[in-house]
């Protein structure tokens, strides 16, 4: 029965937002669909129920979402747009050490890196991310981490660890 509640909640919220109305019909069918999805796929999604349902983590997730869109994305977009015009690129694949251990935290860091233009994660192994970087300034893993993903990892630790 692991993960049923958290997954059902995710599915129910998705269902209600997608439907866009709050009549009793939507609520009843939404609960049925949510529970069904929770029973079907819940055990694959969630490993620790108490962690998944902790509201503090969800609040940090929201803060992260806002910060990410208002600061990180804007900076990266402007940077890559400038490079598109000037053609000033020096691509390469660098190694970035990763501190967080849980599956979701690593995915959050990797996806945040890929979603900011200029950096794309190529592969992940136990301790390192391999990042395809548009403008390689350093080949030291620690320094590269400072430029690419330090902020992301702090938030990922608060949300998922």
């Amino acid at each position: 029965m692991r993960g049923v509640v958290a997954t059902a909640l995710l599915a129910f919220i998705t269902y209600i937002i997608f439907t866009g109305s709050l009549t009793p019909y939507d609520l009843v069918t939404g609960v049925i669909v949510g529970v069904a999805i929770g029973l079907l796929v819940g055990r694959f999604l969630v490993e620790n129920d108490a962690k998944a349902l902790n509201p503090v983590r969800w609040a940090w997730g929201l803060v992260y979402f806002l910060w990410y869109f208002l600061v990180a994305e804007v900076k990266a977009h402007a940077d890559v747009m400038r490079r598109i015009i000037t053609g000033d690129i020096e691509p390469g694949i660098v190694k970035v050490p990763l501190k967080v251990k849980s599956e979701y935290a690593r995915t959050l860091v990797a996806n945040s890196i890929t979603n900011t233009p200029g950096t794309v994660v190529v592969d992940v192994d136990e301790d390192y991310l391999y990042v395809n970087w548009i403008n390689v300034t350093t080949d030291e893993p620690e320094e590269a981490k400072k430029e690419i993903c330090e902020e992301f990892e702090k938030y990922a630790e608060r949300i998922f660890e």
Binding site: E73, V80, M81, I84, I85
Partner: peptide, 23 residues
Amino acid sequence: AIGLLKFPNFYVRLHAATIGTIG
């Protein structure tokens, strides 16, 4: 779109594609 045309190889074009999907 300009980046996809202008950049030299696949790995660099991926960054332009990211602009297209997120922004």
